[in-house]
Design a protein around this nucleic acid. Structure first.
Lengths: 212, 212
DNA sequence: ATTACTATATATCGAGTAG
DNA sequence: TCTACTCGATATATAGTAA
């Protein structure tokens, strides 16, 4: 009603009728909005003057902005993938502890990974479809390199919340001899201990698509 | 979480933890959203699949659009002005019944006015300030004309809700010998009867700034 | 006329728990 | 595990009314 730009003169019965509330309820709401500092009121003899405060405007704009983000965003902030723990051949630790990769993990992921990876097998159609979609995103690139002995390929990582609790990352993928339905997880801690995991346990990953 | 664009796999404990609700409350909310048709769910053995429906998206977008309107709009949809009834010289009926004005009232305001105007005097500073701001807006122009006898000036109207109940319009202003703190109100009915008005009664006008 | 209190009705919450 | 029921606690609503 213009109260965002200027002070308006308004009564509780009138505003209540517009919003289909009782006068009492509306009065209570205005009191709470005033307590929160979202509106400013001046109750005078000739009527009540009201204006939405700058704090209130900020609050409204943040709702607006939040919704706008959702509509304009082409992809979600994170995806959920569930997998089943299995034992690999122990190659993971060979790669993770390699100095060429390790320094990049520390710099780009923000943690020094436990020397080993946790292997997850994707078992159902929905999750493997999600995994295929995940592979499209850029993620965090760990650059390849070579030393005298051999060449090490580039890998792509995504920061990940493991089992709703532990920070880590998924790595796609050191070993190409695994088919595309396998995820490798790294973390500062030894996940099999921290989360008390055994082979065939189900594990939930919340994989973040953006860098932050 | 992407449920606007694709089906996601999500559990009530997980979503509850994200939104800081209990699992039970979240479950109830999802049931209600489903009943409203705002989300579509598929509760399977391996998990719950959820997507926001097109109806739900429309609902979200309407909140977004509504807020956007408020921020982008340079002026409110309506202003409230209170005035005090007083008796004029009876000239109002002379103008309102004039064929040159009357046909335009019918065409542009959508009603055939009662042959007479109700005079309102603006008594306090806030309302006269609002009236001055009102005069800046284009409103609905009733074009002037001339016949053999004399010239009739253009006037500006705004559709108005009188006393929260009766549709009508304010007219600015037939007679320039009233100072700027007077409003004339027209309506299909005789307002002094319909609203049981006497001189010195206070009257509230909700004046719409846009044509619709 | 207002605004807003008190009292009571209604709605919503989460703990416990069944399926 | 999951979803969602019952139920007692808490929060929010309106009626009546004072200022």
């Amino acid at each position: 009603m213009g109260a965002l730009k200027r002070t308006i003169k308004i009564s509780t019965p009138f505003l209540a009728s517009k919003l289909d509330y009782s006068q009492q309820t509306l009065s209570r709401h205005l009191i709470k909005l005033e307590e929160k500092g979202w509106i400013k009121r001046n109750i005078a003899r000739e009527g009540t003057y009201l204006r939405i405060s700058s704090v209130g405007e900020k609050e409204l704009r943040s709702v607006f902005h939040g919704l706008g983000e959702i509509f304009e965003k082409k992809h979600p902030l994170s995806v959920i993938i569930e997998g089943v723990v299995f034992s690999g051949l122990g190659e993971g630790s060979y790669y993770v502890t390699n100095k060429g990769y390790r320094t990049q993990f520390i710099n780009k992921l923000g943690f020094d990974p436990y020397p080993g990876t946790l292997n997850l097998r994707i078992e159902n159609e929905f999750d493997s479809k999600t995994l295929e979609e995940l592979k499209i995103f850029p993620g965090i690139t760990i650059k390849g390199f070579k030393n005298r002995a051999r060449t090490y390929g580039s890998v792509k990582c995504f920061l990940t919340l493991i089992c709703n609790r532990i920070r880590g990352a998924v790595v796609l993928a050191f070993r190409t001899h695994y088919d595309s339905s396998v995820i490798e997880v790294i973390s500062p801690t030894y996940l099999r201990d921290t989360l008390d995991l055994k082979d065939e346990d189900k594990l939930k990953l919340e994989i973040f698509l953006t860098k932050k």
